[in-house]
Computed example of a mutant assay.
Amino acid sequence: MLLTKFTHSCVRFEKAGAVLVIDPGTFSEVEEALEGADTVLITHVHPDHCDVDRVGAALDAAPGVDVHAPAAVVEALADRVTDTGRLHAVTADTEFTAGPFSVATYGGQHALIHPLIPTVDNVGYVIDGAVFHPGDSFTVPHGLTVPTVLVPLHAPWSKTSEVIDFVVATRATRAFPIHEALLSDTGLQLVEHMVTEFSARYGTEFRHLPARESVELASD
């Protein structure tokens, strides 16, 4: 399975001729990531994870694409696509297939930004039992250890100690960064240095993955 990183939280998976994309948001190369896509998974409704205008336009241009996302995302996209039958609401603790990909969902709630800011639904996705995309949450999948975890490096809802604790808790073999668009180059280097150092102490290899770079991963 080929994983390609795009800016911020958008990643693309390719396997057996099928393409699955997670979180094509406003900071990401939406059209490039969605080219040839069969399935789109969205973790939550915030625009840096789902650019509803650009995603809606891409869906209308490619009528065979299915979307799985929390209900709030489905509602937002329903106003922008012609065929709403391709929009599927998902919740945590479910499983489904998307072409050759198996998908399991975890979490359920966005991390707290501030008590005065209401939380929204957030669904993390495990693809083929091999890769975990948590969206905006530090929820750890229960009942399994996922070999590869995508790590939200920086957000209004997190601090670096929590990022490190999340990686340690997953017990993953390897980790790649996501959710880093708000960091300067200097800030990114600093955070990645700390995450790399502490992850290694617990057996996880953290590796910087720039936008548009791909890696091959084993899958079920």
Rank of each mutant, 00 (worst) to 15 (best):
P70F: 11
T139E: 10
G203A: 00
Y106D: 13
T94D: 14
A155I: 06
T82W: 03
V149G: 02
T97F: 06
A211L: 08
M194P: 02
D93Q: 04
F27E: 15
D53W: 11
A61M: 03
D165Y: 01
R171N: 08
R54T: 15
V30Y: 12
F132R: 00
V163N: 09
A200C: 01
V55E: 11
F132M: 01
A58M: 14
L217Y: 10
R171L: 04
L188V: 07
H46N: 15
T94H: 12
F132A: 02
D165R: 11
L41W: 11
L190I: 05
E29F: 15
V74L: 02
Q109H: 13
E14H: 03
T105I: 03
T186Q: 04
T97I: 04
P134Q: 00
G64S: 12
D23A: 13
E213G: 05
V215G: 00
V131F: 13
A57P: 02
L188W: 09
E35A: 15
P147C: 14
A172V: 09
I164K: 02
V21Q: 08
L182T: 05
V103H: 10
V90G: 07
D220K: 10
F176V: 03
A33P: 03
V90R: 06
R207N: 05
L183N: 06
L34Q: 09
T160E: 08
T160V: 11
E95R: 13
H88G: 10
D23V: 13
R12I: 05
T4Y: 04
A78L: 00
S102V: 03
P24E: 07
T97P: 00
P118F: 01
D128E: 10
G64D: 08
A155N: 12
I113K: 11
G17S: 14
L59Y: 03
R207I: 07
D48E: 12
A72G: 15
H49Q: 12
V65Q: 00
F27V: 10
G107H: 10
G143H: 07
G187M: 02
A211W: 00
E197S: 07
P147F: 09
Y125E: 12
V163L: 14
P210F: 12
D220I: 10
H193M: 08
S137P: 14
G129I: 12
D51T: 03
E95L: 14
A37M: 11
G135S: 13
I22A: 09
I127K: 02
T84F: 10
F13T: 08
A62L: 07
